[in-house]
Nucleic acid binder design. Sequence first.
RNA 1: GCCGGCUUAGCACAGCUGGUAGUGCACCUGAUUUGUAAUCAGGGGGUCGGGGGUUCGAAUCCCUCAGCCGGCACCA
Length: 642
Amino acid sequence: MPVVTLPDGSQKQFDSPVTVDEVAASIGAGLRKAALAGKVDGELVDTGFLIERDATLSIVTERDPEGLEVIRHSTAHLLAQAVKQLFPEAQVTIGPVIADGFYYDFAFARPSTPEDLAAIETRMRELVAADMPVSRRVMPRDEAVEFFRSLGEAYKAEIIQSIPAGEQISLYGQGEWVDLCRGPHVPSTGKLKAFKLMKVAGAYWRGDSRNEMLQRIYGTAWPDKKQLDAYLHRLEEAEKRDHRRIGRELDLFHFQEEAPGAVFWHPKGWTVFQSLISYMREKQTAAGFEELNTPEVLDIELWRQSGHAEKFGENMFTTKTPDERVYALKPMNCPGHVQVFRQGLRSYRDLPLRFAEFGKVHRYEPSGALHGLMRVRAFTQDDAHVFCTEEQITAESVQVTRLILDIYRDFGFEDVRIKFSDRPASRVGDDAVWDRAEAALQEAARAAGIECELNPGEGAFYGPKLEFVLRDAIGRDWQCGTLQMDFNMPGRLGATYIDEHSHKRTPVMIHRAMFGSLERFFGILIEHHAGRLPLWLAPVQAVVVTITDRQDDYARRIGESLKNQGVRVEIDLRNEKVGFKIREHTLQRVPYLLVAGDKEVQANTLAVRTRDGKDLGVHAVESLAQRLLQEISSRGRHVLED
RNA sequence: GCCGGCUUAGCACAGCUGGUAGUGCACCUGAUUUGUAAUCAGGGGGUCGGGGGUUCGAAUCCCUCAGCCGGCACCA
């Protein structure tokens, strides 16, 4: 006689075991119709689940996050069913729910085309219209393996075989189609109302590049058409933020075939790039870093010593000179910094030594990995190496962590996470040293007051690391900063110092980068701001716009004056209507448009308009200049509009 | 690197099953002296990504190389 406790605390007693569906029906016909699944004692189950003893139950509908997951999962099944109907030779593998949708991987000899996608989607809609009930049954593991083998589903059988023997396997079926699945699923295919297949892609079986490649179909699914459309709209908006597109539109940079993965910076983009460098230079100098510069092309022998040739050689550009020497373009700055450290005799009194470099590195990245500024083959790191004693590693780590977070705040990134990668299976150095290195990094993260996510065993072979991940305006995560403890390379490259007992010791080296790659960071900034860079970074900060040629002299005079005071200003004297000029500069995301007409000339003022279309009224030229300069130097923390 | 798709004027794109290129914006010239997101008119511009092949004839079909796009794998 089960007593079912509902989320509002009310209880219902039943004379015999009941299904979730029946409980929903007993509450109301509307709820029964809306029910996608149930949660019995916290466990997600089908609406057909039989409640045999006292339990708590909540009915899962499309309004619950779990309900949306069920919809997506069931839509993945629907996709698989449609594919099997249209292409019986295709074998099914897995079809999980992912952010905003799902995918399903198929093993299929013939490549799927976008036309296939349309046909599959049409078939899916037919299956929805048929409103087929979804049923569940269980089978012992070995029987399930045999069952799928008999269907010719080798991949499925392989998956089931990896489940412990003796376990019961649940199978879900709709119409003629059956799939292995943990569930739960919607009660019938008619519940799936808003979905769209997005793209086909290749994906390795079990995520391993040594395995064969399967065909993956991505889709999205939502409770209703409105939410689906909102999602598609969101994708369009994200596309408008694409830094590759904005980079071209705003004349910031370009790429071309002859230099895959290498940036041609245009004057405007380079202006921003240089602003980033000046900013970082100021910050790190204040934090006790000394800037230096080391060669980009170094004899391959040095890279053999450092271990890069062996561990990283696949990713290195090399060059052979007419004298038959082989050099490599540096993929990292650390060996160069160690060379500077090694010059002369270092004393423990010199430590910590903090060497920083805006080092341009080259890495031969796999062609398929290249992606605008986000993944390139030639990039600039704001790289630094702190050479210190073991006693100093905690203090140094804490300081660097604070600095990184402080810098991210200046750019408006408040949502930062830290990932901690500890010792990998294959490593150098003894465990006592690893203990200290890991403790130092954890202390640094703790001092920063940020929750630390563990990446077990993901540390570098020479030491553990912290990675700083920031989240942009549209919720994407980017790994930028990194802090790595290195007990290995200084020794390999012969770096030593003399300790207080006159003994030669090997220093610890801390690798740190804050932007990570300046190119990538710039790309993130563009997308984060949708091209509307804050005033201090904007390549053109203001444009003086005239209405007729009667204001030309005035505009020239003001332009000169602002320029002399350090504002990046342009003057637009073109024989065009103001509306036309406003439109163009707004599209160029110029922060402030300073309009000069006859009235403004008369009063020695300017009419100020923002790129967002706000009219800030008329301002006296001198006070406007002061306020612009203030906004620039405060890096946007006080804006003109306040 | 792997799977799939794409590559036509500076940019965005048309160009059916092969008959040797077009639209819009941009650009140039002229007119217009203009008050907050597009003034009007005229004009110039492409060896259709590179190479090879099939064909009387290729932007269009085939092969190949490169780059790009979306994923996978890798990663700052």
